[in-house]
Design a protein around this nucleic acid. Structure first.
Lengths: 203, 203, 203, 203
DNA sequence: AAGTAAACGAGACGGTACGTCCTGTCTTCTT
DNA sequence: AAGAAGACAGGACGTACCGTCTCGTTTACTT
C-alpha cells in the first residue's frame, strides 16, 4: 500500500534542465553586475538567460527567491565557524570574512535587492529570514563558545551581540555611508566583545 | 539693492496648492496604514488624495521623495537632544524615543518603504542619506558631549557608537525579528556605552 | 524547391487569438453604434472588447487601422460589378448599393471616422487610399465597359466620372446635408452619364 | 514661440485685445504651415501665439472655431460671383478660383482639419455647415442665373450641380489623389454643365 | 521501437502602473 | 476687465512588465 506519500508513478517526462537553472542564476548575477543597474525584471532575466518565462515561474516562486538562490550559489563556500582560540580572534575572523563578502559590489547589490524585496513581499521576507537565521546561528555559536570558555560573563546577552554585529553590517550595506573594510570588521569585533563583557549588561 | 539675482518678475500664475500637498502626504500615510498593505502606487496615491497625477509629478521627483516627505511631516516633532546629566540616561532617552517611533506600524512601514526604494533609486538614496545624517548628528552630539564630560575615553570611536545604535535599530525594523520595545532600547544604550568605554578600542 | 525563403522554424509560441481580434472589431462597431457617440478611445475599445491594451497595439498600428478593418470586415459582401445590360442600369445599381451602405448610421460613422483620422495620420491616409482605390476600380470598370459598348464617347474621361460619383457620395456623407437615398443615387447615376456623354469633354 | 506677434502687445484691459486675436489666428496658420505637421493643440496655439490659454477659451468655443476663423480671415478676399456672359465661363472662373484656394498647402491643411473636427464635434460641424452654405449659395446663384438665361433646362437640378462641384472639390482635397489644378477646374465646369444640360435629368 | 508526459523556448493573452501630454477650469498678479 | 502665466483635476496615450496560457519541440522514462 503505497497510497500514502509516494505518487503511483515516480516520474514521467523530461527532467529539470540544470543548465536552464544555472543560466537563470548566472543571468541574475550578470544583470546585477551591470554598471548601469537595470531594474532586474523577470522578463529581463528570462531573455538574458535565454530561457522561457514559464521555466522560471515553474521553479521559483518569486524574483526574490531567484536572487536569494543566486546568492546562495555564489556563497557556497560557507563562512566556517572559525577557531582561533580566543573569542576576539574568532569574531575578527568571522566578521572579516563576512565584510569581505559584502564588499564585492555584485554581492552587495544582491543583498540589497533581496532586503528591498523582502519589505514588500512576505514570501521573500520569509526566505530571507531563514537565510539570515542560518548566519546568525553561526555567530551565536561563536559567542556562546566564548562565553562557555569564560571570556564573557555568564549572563551576557549573546543575541544582542549578534544584532549589533549584523545590524552594523546591514546598515553599512544598505546605506553605503561606510566601506566594509577589514579594519571596520576588527573594530566591530572589539565593540561586540566590549558590549557583552561589560558588567552592566542586565537591568 | 537686490538687482543682481532676483528675476524681474518673481512669480506669475497660480501658486502651489498647499491643500493638494497635504492631501498627497495624508494619502500616503493612510495607504501605508491599511492592514492589507496595498503596493503604494503613484496612481493609487493620486486617487486616494483626489489629486491629478500630474500634480504629483510636478512637485515630487519620485515616489520615495513623497514617502520621505510624509515621514518628515509626521516626525516634525523632532527628537530633541536630551540632557539627563549622564550619558547613559541621555542614550536611553534618545533611543527609547527613536524606538517608540519605529514601533508605530505605519511609521515602520514608511521607513521600510523608503529604505527599499533607496536601494533602487539613487535619488531616493541621496535624500534618505540626508535624512539619516540629521538623525545621526543628534546621536553623535550626545556621545561627544558624554566624552567631553569624561564618561568616555578620549579616543572613543563616536561614529562606531552611532553605527551600532542605528544599525541595530534599522536591522530590527527591516527584519522584524525583534520588537522595538523600551527594554530593547535600554539594553542597546548600555551596549553602546560599554562598546565605547572599553579600553581595547585601538589596534 | 522552396528551401530558400522558408525559415527553419516558421513559428514559435502562442498564435494570435482570432477571438480577440473579432472582439476588438465588434467593440469598435458597437461603440460607434452607441447613440451618445463616445469619442472612441483605445482604452475604451480595449475595455469594451475585454482585451488587453497591448494586444491591440500588437496587431494594429493605429486606431484608424482598426476602424478600417472593422469596416472591411462588415463590408465583406463586396459590391459586385453589376451587369444590367446598360451603363445607366449598371451605374444605378452600383450607386444604389453604395448609398445603401452609407445610409446605415454606424457604417457612416465608421467612414467619417476613418476620413477624419486620415487627415492627421499619414498611415491611415495610406490605408484609406488603398481601400478607396479598390472601390474606384470597380466603378471605373463599369464605366470603361460602357464606353467599350459605345455608350460613351471614346475620349470620355472615366476618372472624372469616378470622382463625381464618389465625390458626391463622400460629400453627402461628411456634411450630412443631403440623405443617401436611392433616388439620390439614381439622379447621380444619370448625372455621371450625362457628364461623360457630353461632346465638350476635351479642351 | 511668440515670434508671430509683435513684442509689445499691451494688455488693454476691459476691451478685447485685437492683437491677441490676431496672434492666435496667425499662430494657427503658422502651425498648420509647419512641414512636420504638429497635432495642433490648444496649448500649442496658446504658446505659439504668446497668449494665455484662458484668453483663447474666452473668445472661441472650440478649436475648430479658431481654425475656421483663421480660414475666414485669410479668405477675406471673397470669391466674387463672376459674370463672364456665359454659364460655362462663370463656372470655370468660379471653380478655378476655388481650386486655386485649395491648392495652397496651408489652406488645404486648414480645410482638412476643419472637416476632420466636424466629424467629431457637432458644434464645429454646425459652423462648417454655415461656412459651406455661404459658398454653395454663390455657386447656386451662378447656376440659377445660367438657367434663367436659358443655358440650362428649366427643370435642371441646380443643387445636384452644386453637390457635384463641391463634392469633387472636397473629395480631391481630403483624399489628395488628384491635384487641384486649373485644368481640373475647367474639366469639372464642363462636366457640371453637361450633367445639368442633359435631357435625362428628371425621372 | 512506440507511446506518453513533462520540461523547454517562444510568444500572445488580460491586466496594471507608469510617466507624459493635453483638456478645460481656476487662481494670481499685471496692465 | 482683460490678459499672461501657470497650477489644478481629470483622462487617454503608448510602453513595460506581470503572471498565465498556448504552441510545437525535445527529452526521458515506460511499455
Amino acid at each position: 500500500m503505497k497510497d500514502v506519500a509516494g505518487p503511483a508513478r515516480p516520474h514521467t517526462g523530461r527532467r529539470r534542465n540544470e543548465q536552464a537553472r544555472q543560466a537563470v542564476l548566472d543571468a541574475v548575477w550578470t544583470l546585477l553586475s551591470r554598471p548601469d543597474r537595470p531594474p532586474l525584471t523577470m522578463e529581463g532575466i528570462a531573455v538574458a538567460a535565454g530561457v522561457g518565462r514559464q521555466t522560471i515561474y515553474r521553479w521559483w516562486p518569486s524574483k526574490g527567491a531567484i536572487v536569494l538562490e543566486t546568492l546562495a550559489e555564489r556563497a557556497r563556500t560557507d563562512v566556517p565557524q572559525p577557531d582561533t582560540g580566543t573569542l576576539l580572534g574568532d569574531l575578527e575572523t568571522f566578521l572579516s570574512a563576512t565584510f569581505a563578502r559584502g564588499a564585492d559590489p555584485t554581492a552587495a547589490a544582491l543583498l540589497r535587492h533581496i532586503m528591498a524585496e523582502a519589505q514588500q513581499d512576505p514570501a521573500v521576507a520569509d526566505t530571507l529570514h531563514r537565510f539570515t537565521s542560518a548566519r546568525r546561528d553561526v555567530l551565536r555559536a561563536i559567542l556562546a563558545q566564548g562565553r562557555d570558555r569564560g571570556e564573557l560573563p555568564t549572563g551576557a546577552d549573546v543575541d544582542l551581540g549578534v544584532d549589533i554585529a549584523y545590524g552594523v553590517y546591514w546598515y553599512a550595506l544598505l546605506l553605503g555611508h561606510v566601506p566594509l573594510t577589514s579594519e571596520a570588521a576588527h573594530a566591530l569585533a572589539r565593540a561586540v566583545l566590549a558590549a557583552l563583557t561589560a558588567p552592566v549588561s542586565s537591568p
